[in-house]
Design a protein around this nucleic acid. Structure first.
Lengths: 244, 244
DNA sequence: GGAGCCCTTTGATCCACGTCAATACGATTT
DNA sequence: AAATCGTATTGACGTGGATCAAAGGGCTCC
């Protein structure tokens, strides 16, 4: 060890006010003073290794989690073993909102890669959002956004064909990578074909075939999990120009 | 006009404190004094005739709505005309949460029968829930419940077969009628086969055939929209005992 | 209370996606 | 660098639900 890093430095490094995700996360719309109050509330960070659970269905709900680094999937498992991936979450997105309703989590949250989350004790968040109007509003927006997102997935699952679903998925990923300062056209998927299939209500073989088809048609270049989108308008056309 | 009805009588008749839906609705968990404060906030009621919109996708979001009487469906419509029913709502349930995220509604809410809603101006609800902890918490629970419900629909759409979906739908309806003091086993559906199909990601013919199959198997007695559940355990078995 | 129309049911056929199976690829371990 | 294992691709075939079609039933609105 060459030098001792002051504790304050470490804390500032992980504070909301210094976090480059704050525009996507809970601090959005807060003024600097309010962000400081939020900082105090975010007690601890937690590292989750790839494939490990952040929480499990049935766990007592105590906190929501903001993703600092890495990515997650959430899934629901039925008694008979069938499971459904309900979402993929990226940095700046919030996990755990499902737990508020019953005080217990109703799904599993699993890291797709080594990740880190900010732990936000929920009762303290409610307390602070009674005092800070902009925090309250931003939190409500985040919950509402989740509801709107879910409606989009229902639309996808209920009325789109396989290739449309995959196109919608790729465009959505592209947009979210863009919002995080990454390339809109080239990215690395952290989930398997099976997980994509579960999310899209398809079998992994169907996902794989759809990828191959897109490649043949010059829409994307696929190399395993590495995706390069070659024709964004083409993908969008796939979505909207439906016969019926 | 025979006599003048005092204004107070009318107001008490529609007040949260006098509403028999309050255990299902926003006032749940509030003490009487707090319910009175909520009462003041619920400015007006609005009657919506069958087939009419409570709000449309794109409308500016100003209020959420609690259903006093009747029932609704919400749907999302794609540019190419395809639509997806995202939910059916009954008395005591809250509509409009989708609008918080962008300040505009992202779906349509349409009355399935002549209905009445309580209009809850959202900015005033946020204001009051900064003062009344139990209201804040109940509101968060309602939003979270919506997220959990949506995950259930994703599971249904993503990994169940047609008859399982319909069984899940019927059991869900039964449970919600029960919670409202109606018979668990006999009820009237307010939506068409087409709307059920849209919700369940099936064509109306498939819904109709599944009903017929259930009837043959002695699980339910179906007479158009009138449903009598004859074998609840049988329906539940259909859900859980899946081969794979 | 009758006419019209929407809703529902049922049958016949088709096709998109699931299933089963074999192979190939790539990351990780030793 | 070889061995191993999870992941992905591709092919052949089967099937559940969509589609097309026609007839009957029950609301709704005059």
């Amino acid at each position: 060890m060459k030098s001792v890093i002051p504790v304050t430095t470490l804390e500032i490094k992980t504070a909301c006010s210094q976090c480059n995700l704050r525009e996507l996360c809970l601090p959005f719309g807060l003024d600097p003073n309010e962000v400081d109050q939020l900082d105090e509330l975010v007690g601890s960070r937690r590292k989750i290794k790839r494939q490990q659970h952040l929480y499990r269905s049935g766990d007592v709900f105590e906190a929501i989690y903001a993703i600092r680094a890495g990515s997650f999937k959430t899934d629901v498992i039925l008694e008979d073993g069938r499971d459904q991936v309900t979402g993929f979450q990226m940095t700046g997105e919030v996990l755990g909102l499902d737990g508020i309703s019953t005080e217990h989590h109703s799904c599993n949250a699993i890291a797709l890669e080594d990740s880190e989350v900010c732990v936000i004790p929920f009762s303290r968040l409610e307390e602070l959002s009674r005092q800070v109007e902009s925090l309250q509003h931003q939190f409500h927006k985040i919950m509402s956004r989740e509801i709107v997102r879910d409606h989009g997935v229902m639309m996808l699952l209920g009325s789109m064909r396989a290739e449309e679903r995959l196109a919608a998925f790729l465009l959505n990923m592209s947009q979210r990578f863009t919002a995080r300062g990454f390339s809109p056209s080239e990215f690395h998927l952290r989930m398997t074909r099976d997980e994509i299939g579960s999310y899209l209500g398809l079998k992994l073989e169907t996902v794989s075939r759809a990828f191959s088809r897109f490649q043949e048609d010059g829409l994307v270049a696929v190399q395993q999990k590495h995706i390069r989108i070659l024709d964004t308008p083409g993908l969008k056309r796939l979505l909207n120009h439906h016969a019926a």
